[in-house]
Design a binder for these strands. Structure first.
Length: 585
DNA sequence: TTAGGGTTAG
């Protein structure tokens, strides 16, 4: 256009700024800004507003502010755009300040303005401001607007005030699909995936049709519950029959759902069917391979992604490093961590260091793991310290374990997990007096204990088992099946690992306790309740126990079933006497 | 030209 001697107009620049936003390129945006000034169009109100918006969306609130400050005249769109930029970057105090300032300058806010302010207040730190703003909205009659009502619910949800969000939802005069989506997303974000699915059923029962965003949230809920049947059924009913288009975002949610529900095949099938893959879909597929123990396939995918000239982002490296750590690829992990810094110029985040700690912990290189923790440029969080402590337990390192546990208790004295792991570590080392002391301390400190449980779905109904479970209506048949399986597996070579039963009791008693672990009760129940040859899927809230792991390997062979366990950190596929983790976890 | 709900992570 320039070569042809045609001068760009205001409309040309508006379109070009849009293009900068869609490729999220701050550099191109700055270039456009320079051209606009060069053409003498810098004082145009619409262009200045569009520049503020572009800078906000391209990640530079400072440049947006600069343009805003330089403006000779500002309309309601200018103020709203600047407030919206603050909202996008978590600057809630600035957003409120701008909102007050615009009114002193005599500019009247409209519904878009108040929606932007509500967006800025949607974070836990902004709850107090949000509540005050809510009062302003009521005083000025904005709360009758249905979008404002929904944004208010979202604000309370994001601030962690679920009660306020729910009570507002109940009071809404008209609940549209966005209201329901806000509620469902809130349940997901706060770990209540069951409630999210329940809300969806209610929404359907009163005839509100789901849209694309509803479905994305539902797949997320099914993923976190590992509810394969429900997820598959939602997939089938909304995509095959109603022909909703499967774009990259939706496909990613689906491939993630199948992966988290233990079906690697379905996950890969969705990935293969994608016409266009973005970095998020590649990341998800690599993570799925990592979690299922196929680290090398994950790395292969990473190299294919680069062959296609797609730039990895920082999450790609988390995926790649976790592929290494789950498969014992220590040298590869060290290599990718270095190349990420050197060639890709990424500054590692706490999560990247977390992956490195995990890599060394799983490999039993506890000294290296501790070294990463000591030398990283962050104060290690509880999750990283817990990785080290769990690894000390796994490798019987009492001294280092003591250190890690003390650090953890400093961070959160009420957390029961470090006490339990230490207690197991002492028990495995035969230090029964220390086990007893710890137990007294736990009672005195009144710590929160998280007990282990295993979940299995039969005909879409959830069955939860705990160790020595006595609640299940079919408990008699389940314990009889466990006894039968114990005899069969022992004949086939399973040797109970009495070192993993951490009570100071007689051997025979220990074996009995081992047999009542929640994993074994869940598998026994699944075997007597499902058709032969079908795959059994179990979800465990903690990591799978070593004895249950060797039991399940033998069992998968003698009963001719594939058993998939999702534990707190990965998947185990048991088939024909082997596990996909190759006994490395 | 500004706007309410959503996908990947140790």
């Amino acid at each position: 256009m320039l070569e042809d001697g045609l001068a760009p107009t205001k409309v040309t620049f508006l379109n070009l700024l849009d293009a900068c936003i869609s490729i999220s390129s701050l550099e191109h945006g700055k270039l456009m800004h320079a051209c606009i000034s060069g053409c003498g169009l810098a004082s145009d109100l619409a262009l200045a507003n569009a520049l503020i918006n572009m800078y906000g969306k391209c990640g530079s609130p400072e440049h947006a502010r600069f343009v805003f400050e330089k403006m000779l005249e500002r309309d309601v769109v200018s103020w709203t755009s600047m407030i919206s930029v603050c909202a996008q970057h978590g600057l809630h105090k600035e957003a409120i300040k701008l909102f007050e300032e615009m009114q002193t300058k005599g500019v009247k806010p409209n519904r878009v303005t108040v929606l932007s302010v509500l967006g800025a207040c949607a974070s836990p730190a902004a709850l107090a401001q949000g509540k005050l703003f809510h009062q302003y909205l009521v005083r000025n009659g904005f709360n009758y607007d249905s979008a404002v009502g929904n944004a208010l619910i979202n604000m309370y949800a994001k601030c962690g005030s679920l009660e306020d969000a729910c009570s507002l939802f109940k009071k809404l005069a008209k609940r549209d699909v966005v209201s329901w989506n806000t509620l469902i997303a809130m349940y997901n974000q706060h770990g209540h995936a069951d409630a999210a699915l329940e809300a969806f059923r209610k929404m359907q029962s009163i005839g509100v049709l789901p849209d694309k965003i509803t479905l994305l949230s539902l797949f997320e809920a099914c993923a976190s519950l590992a509810a394969l049947e429900e997820g598959t059924s939602i997939h089938a009913s909304f995509f095959d029959k109603q022909q909703l288009k499967l774009d990259s975002t939706m496909a990613t949610a689906l491939l993630n759902m199948y992966g988290k529900c233990g079906s690697l095949e379905d996950s890969r099938c969705i990935f293969n069917s994608l016409a266009e893959r973005d970095v998020v879909s590649w990341n998800s597929m690599i993570v799925t391979y990592a979690q299922h123990g196929y680290g090398l396939l994950g790395l292969q995918l990473f190299s294919m992604m680069q062959d296609g000239y797609l730039e990895p982002d920082n999450i790609t490296f988390i995926a790649v490093l976790s592929a290494c750590s789950h498969s014992g690829l220590v040298q590869e992990g060290i290599h990718y961590f270095a190349s990420m810094k050197m060639y890709h110029k990424f500054i590692p985040t706490m999560r990247h260091y977390g992956c490195m700690v995990d890599l060394f912990c799983r490999a039993g290189e506890l000294g290296e793991a501790e070294c990463v923790i000591t030398n990283m440029p962050f104060e290690p969080d509880a999750a990283i310290r817990m990785m080290l402590l769990s690894a000390c337990r796994l490798h019987g390192d009492v001294e280092r374990g003591n250190r890690a546990a003390l650090n953890l208790l400093e961070l959160d004295p009420k957390n029961g997990a470090p006490y339990l792991v230490m207690s197991n570590l002492y028990a495995a080392a035969g230090l029964w007096d220390k086990v007893a002391k710890l137990s007294e301390l736990m009672i005195a400190e009144n710590v929160d204990r998280q007990s282990g449980c295993s979940i299995v779905y039969v005909k879409n109904k959830k069955h939860v088992f705990v160790v020595r479970d006595s609640f299940h209506p079919q408990k008699k048949a389940i314990y009889a099946e466990v006894e039968r399986l114990s005899r069969l597996t022992k004949q086939a070579g399973y040797v109970p690992d009495l070192n993993l039963e951490l009570h100071n009791t007689e051997e025979e008693q220990k074996e009995k306790l081992l047999l009542s672990h929640s994993e074994k009760l869940a598998i026994a129940f699944a075997l007597i309740s499902t058709p032969s040859k079908t795959t059994i899927r179990i979800i465990k809230n903690l990591r799978v126990c070593g004895d249950c792991h060797s039991f399940l390997k033998v069992l998968s062979k003698i009963v001719g079933r594939e058993v998939v366990i999702r534990d707190a950190s990965r998947f185990h596929h048991f088939k024909d006497g082997l596990c996909s983790c190759g006994d490395y976890w």
